[in-house]
Simulated scan of single mutants.
Amino acid sequence: MATIHPSAFVDPGARLAEDVQVGAQAFVDADVVIGQGSRIMPGAHIGRWTTLGNNNLVYPGAVIGHDPQDLGYHGEEAYTIIGDGNVMREGFTVHRGNRPGTRTVIGNNNYFMVNSHVAHNCVIGNHVILVNGALLAGHVEVGNRVIISGNCQVHQFVRIGDFAMMRGGSNTSKDIPPYCLNDGTNWIRALNLVGLKRNGFSEERIRTVKEAFKIIFRSGFGLGKALNYLEQDGEITDDVARMVEFIKTSKRGIGSGRGSTRD
């Protein structure tokens, strides 16, 4: 049976695994599901229609799955779906979907630091880190093993590719391709080389991604010409193909290298 502090409130309609711990003055609403090994610390709030997987840690003052900050939302049933092994620190907030039947989705083994925020309808991959004060607006998509540094801001509907990084205090209203580092405003400054090395990329894999990056952001080609060159004459590894496909499918456009041209 779950361990629930006497001062906590757990709605009778919530379903908690037997070893879940709920701390003092925590709140768990109706229609919540919490998986094995999860711990809801004192003062945390789990909103309605939230599903937490196994081994999640929700720290004091975090608010998980509450109403979206959307004036068009009026209490309709919408969802927050969170996987396994996530850490949600003090003051972290994530909101449910903003329309009936929609959802905000978070994967596995992510780390959300103090006062970071994931808005409605976002989709977050695995092994993502949001540092203190990082803010994601609605409908943002974040790939795997991304780092969004302190006080970064991400505009609604932006996509951030796998292994990308945003430097502290930067912001973007454009998509950030896989493996890239965003600085300032919409500036794809460099590759996230430290991140690639830490994630076990070989020298050969990094070399091919470097060459593709130079063609896209440093050659002086327009974006369309750069992609055509890569597809026709470049070395198309799986990593390069991922970059090219991400850029080709961008709806918001991508950030540019400083001084580069864009079609």
Rank of each mutant, 00 (worst) to 15 (best):
A8V: 03
F9L: 01
V10I: 11
V10Q: 02
D11P: 10
D11E: 13
L16R: 09
L16V: 05
A17Q: 01
A17H: 10
E18G: 04
D19G: 09
V20Q: 00
Q21R: 12
Q21N: 05
Q21C: 06
G23A: 12
A24R: 04
F27W: 06
V28Y: 04
A30L: 00
V32F: 04
V33S: 08
G35F: 12
Q36Y: 11
Q36K: 13
H45W: 10
T50K: 09
T51N: 09
N54R: 14
Y59P: 06
P60I: 03
G61Q: 03
V63T: 02
I64R: 06
G65C: 11
H66N: 13
D70L: 14
D70R: 08
L71F: 11
Y73C: 12
Y73G: 09
A78C: 14
A78R: 05
Y79K: 10
I82N: 11
I82D: 12
N86H: 11
M88K: 13
M88V: 07
R89I: 04
E90F: 11
E90C: 14
E90Q: 11
E90M: 13
F92W: 02
H95S: 04
R96D: 03
R96E: 06
G97E: 08
N98Y: 12
P100H: 12
T104V: 12
T104C: 13
I106F: 12
G107Q: 01
Y111N: 06
M113P: 10
N115Q: 14
H117I: 01
H117C: 07
N121Y: 09
I124G: 10
G125C: 06
V128A: 07
N132W: 12
G133V: 01
L136N: 03
L136D: 01
G138I: 02
G138L: 14
V140K: 02
E141P: 01
E141Y: 08
V146E: 04
I148Y: 07
N151W: 05
N151M: 13
V154M: 01
V154F: 10
R159V: 00
I160M: 09
G161K: 02
G161T: 05
R167D: 07
R167V: 05
G169P: 06
K174M: 08
P178T: 02
P178F: 09
P178V: 05
P178W: 10
L181G: 00
L181M: 15
L181S: 02
N182G: 09
D183F: 14
N186F: 09
W187H: 11
I188S: 10
R189W: 05
N192E: 04
L193F: 02
V194M: 06
G195E: 06
L196I: 03
N199S: 08
N199F: 12
N199K: 06
G200L: 12
F201Q: 00
I206A: 05
I206S: 02
V209R: 07
E211D: 15
F213R: 00
S219G: 03
S219A: 13
G222Q: 09
G222M: 03
A226D: 10
L230C: 07
L230E: 07
L230W: 03
I236P: 07
I236E: 14
V240D: 10
V240H: 10
A241G: 15
R242M: 15
V244L: 15
F246Q: 07
I247W: 14
S250L: 11
R252C: 13
R252W: 14
R262Y: 15
